[in-house]
Design a protein around this nucleic acid. Structure first.
Length: 441
RNA sequence: GGGGCCGUGGUCUAGUGGUUUAUGACACUUCCCUGUCACGGAAGAAAUCGCCGGUUCGAAUCCGGUCGGCCCCGCCA
């Protein structure tokens, strides 16, 4: 018999079907037993008489007849609540071991280390799964939006011969007889490919060895990048806002049930995302709070929350774009503003109080780029392949990137970015807590 | 890198102005239950209160150290 998806069972009333899935909860009433069976499409209640014991979360295969429930037994909480399966044959494909904690609750009430120590199990919980269904939709939304902007997907390496952008801390790896580094960003490769394919996007893993232990930092993240040739600064901001809002809007529209489960309102996407220069944003913060941040080189997390509150009040927008950060605070390839070189043609996109994207117009002149590299005490020799791109007709170009986990975290208002990563890596954990390992380096 | 806080059965917790049989819930085991849907009822097992040392007649509780964890700032996605 062909397997029927659980989402299809309401259309199969009166029919004998085969379903496969996991026994999410088992309610044993003596002779009669109710099993809520979950597959990747949904949940259905199955009823059996004199069943052998089925441990919770066991993989099961059930044959039986789909029947309509009497009016008073309908469960309005679940999609399949008007029907149920009367079990004729129950087969346990794999009996689950005893749960280390209660998996049957609506929410897993676990501390973060416990949640991650038991990741293979906790990922089976519907509320955890919802996070990653949304995340998949965010990535898909990014692809759709980038392709609307005529970008082509490219696949770039994560091992590089030199540390890509200098300054920040990188992971060093042994590479045959040499040292190599895990990339902090696909930046240099996407610029090279943008010089060839004109418009590109990349979804890449990136690695940061910074000793940051916060609720929004990971050592390995998925970064989603775009890079555009022949775009000037204002068009670049248009592209940023198109992709940034389009991606989040897409995810929200594709996964409304996830937003509902987490009690999250749909994102407010304005027709025009408000744009402020850093100094303008700082003036607004000063007016609103009295805190004088107008001399600061960047917005701190409190400032980001404040300027987002302003955007929501004044523009009914969950998004705000901040531009013109100080040149010396940005990466070497960032183009200084010709009208005021102290500041750069750089930008951040903020969403609900947090930075979800950074980018800039790039320096596309070879000599200027070499000067920028040397002025930061880096060696142009380490950028040989990259610089090659700027010798052969590199047009004005720029781009931006998003952190997938951080976007996911912020859409669902999760309290820690680790919850938005299937297998988070940080200073203390790679799958298991590093402190539990014997081979301390 | 700087600062703040927390470690109690498998899990999540109460108790931290010194005297308890160390609280409760869920999970687990046994029994009862043919309409539950986070099923219900009865009973049971399960914690030397992270570890080491100190103060005291007496420490889960106070002090010191140590290990583990969480949060904030810096930096960033």
């Amino acid at each position: 018999m062909n397997r029927t998806r659980i989402s299809e069972t309401p259309q199969a009333v009166g029919q004998k079907v085969l379903i496969k899935g996991w026994a999410q909860t088992v309610r044993d009433h003596g002779k009669i037993t109710f099993i809520d069976v979950r597959d990747h499409t949904g949940i259905i209640q199955c009823v059996g008489v004199n069943l052998t014991k089925i441990p919770v979360e066991s993989a099961v295969s059930l044959e039986g007849t789909i029947v309509a429930r009497p009016e008073k037994l309908v469960n309005k909480e679940i999609v399949t609540g008007t029907i149920e399966m009367q079990i004729e044959t129950a087969t346990v494909l794999h009996a689950a071991h005893e749960m280390p904690f209660d998996m049957g609750q609506k929410e897993l009430n676990l501390e973060l280390p416990t949640l991650l120590d038991w990741r293979a199990l906790t990922l089976k919980h519907s509320r955890e799964q919802a996070i990653f269904r949304l995340q998949a939709a965010v990535a898909q939304g990014f692809r759709e939006s980038a392709e609307e902007m005529e970008c082509m997907e490219v696949f770039t390496p994560t091992v590089a011969a030199s540390s890509t952008e200098g300054g920040a801390e990188v992971f060093k790896v042994q590479y045959y007889e040499h040292s190599a580094f895990l990339i902090q960003s696909p930046q240099l490769y996407k610029q090279i490919t943008a010089g060839a394919f004109e418009r590109v996007y990349v979804i890449s893993h990136v690695y940061r060895a910074e000793p940051s232990v916060t609720t929004r930092h990971l050592s390995e993240v998925v970064q989603m990048d775009c890079e555009f040739s022949f775009l000037e600064f204002p068009e670049l901001l248009d592209a940023l806002e198109h992709v940034g809002t389009g991606m989040i809007k897409y995810a929200a529209e594709m996964q409304p049930d996830v937003l509902k489960l987490y009690g999250i309102d749909h994102p407010k996407v304005p027709t025009k995302v408000p744009r402020l220069k850093l100094r303008e944003a700082q003036e607004i913060i000063k007016e609103r709070t009295g805190r004088d941040v107008t001399k600061e080189q960047d917005l701190n997390p409190e400032d980001e929350r404040e300027i987002c509150a302003w955007a929501l009040e004044m523009h009914d927008s969950d998004f705000v774009t901040i531009t013109h950060f100080p040149t010396k605070k940005r990466a070497f390839y960032t183009m200084p503003d010709p009208e005021d070189p102290e500041f750069s043609l750089s930008f951040d996109l903020l969403f609900r109080g947090i930075e979800i994207s950074s980018g800039s117009q790039r320096i596309h002149d070879y000599d200027e780029l070499v000067t920028a590299i040397t002025s930061r005490n880096m060696n142009p020799k380490d950028f040989e392949l990259y610089l090659q791109a700027f010798k052969f007709g590199m047009p004005p170009e720029g781009g931006f990137s998003f952190g997938l986990e951080r976007v996911t975290m912020k859409i669902l208002e999760l309290d820690n970015v680790r919850r938005a990563s299937l297998f988070p890596r940080d200073m203390e954990r790679v799958d298991v807590r590093l402190a539990t390992l014997q081979d301390k380096a």
